[in-house]
Amino acid sequence: MMTMKMREDIIKCDFLIVGGGIAGMQAAITGSALGMDVVVAEKADTRRSGSGATGNDHFICYIPEYHGDDFEEILREISETLVGPWQDKDLLSLMMKRSQEVIELWESYGINMRPTGKWNFEGHSMPGRRRYHLKYDGHDQKPLLTKQALKNGCRILNKTTVNELLTDDTGRVVGAIGVNIANDEPELVVFQAKAVLVCTGHSVRIYPGMNPAYPFNASNCPADTGSGIAMGFRAGARLVNLDIPYVHAGPSMFQRCGKATWIGVLTDYYGKPVGPFVTKPTRELGDVTADIWQTVFREKCRTVQDQYL
């Protein structure tokens, strides 16, 4: 039978952040810079946790100096590529408006947003249109965000998974309960906070993947189990945007990674280009066909099957 000890002191702070991924760490840095006493509870280690683990190399953004000032047109163009149709428009607009601010902050933390010396936008693009995916050197993004958070005085509790939010009689969230799994004997930890932010990322393991060769069922961190959303729901939060799925397109039986930013020409079974955009591989454009025609793989395979039947 497993025993569990309990941490004697309650961890108190102004701002408890559940999940030390990129979003959680950025919130921690911003909160602490504003003078809050911040605690991050992360079930792995913020230096490598979450989907940001061993790095990112592109960031969809709006830089007025590069893209120009017609924000509505730019939003429209972004919505017409990749997962643009599957977006909360207000969130997309907010994200794009503030993306330059994020880039400047990341540069100040030592993340190299301009490894070639200038803004480098590539991939997921229609020929002749502006490009929105900034290519940057984010190989050490998590360690640098961690370093900045610690520099700002944040307390980071690694190996500490939060399982339940705590509410008072009025229903207001006042803290959380977690478990420190650093040692063989787990330790129950109680948090008390004026505000709690749940940043637990995607919900990846809701169902098993269909393809035996596709580990888990997504390319995002398989430890992102959606438990943060569930605990918010149990605490009385109103959940929004659950009708907007996280979509990808890719060839069946293969790991999806590589569809996103890839250099090539999407061709059918007979070797003919499927889309009108590129005839030769180009790093500047990629091939945006699969971004905007998300059922292309299914439809093209079906065509071949029909031929044989």
Binding site: K43, A44, R48, A53, T54, N158, K159, I181, F216, P222
Partner: peptide, 27 residues
Amino acid sequence: QICPLDVIKVEQKRIIVKYPDECWHCR
């Protein structure tokens, strides 16, 4: 300490991959 899926464990004599099927290959 840093494995995002917590699959590696420090045992008495050596360090092992305790949950091999949970490896995400993040490196």
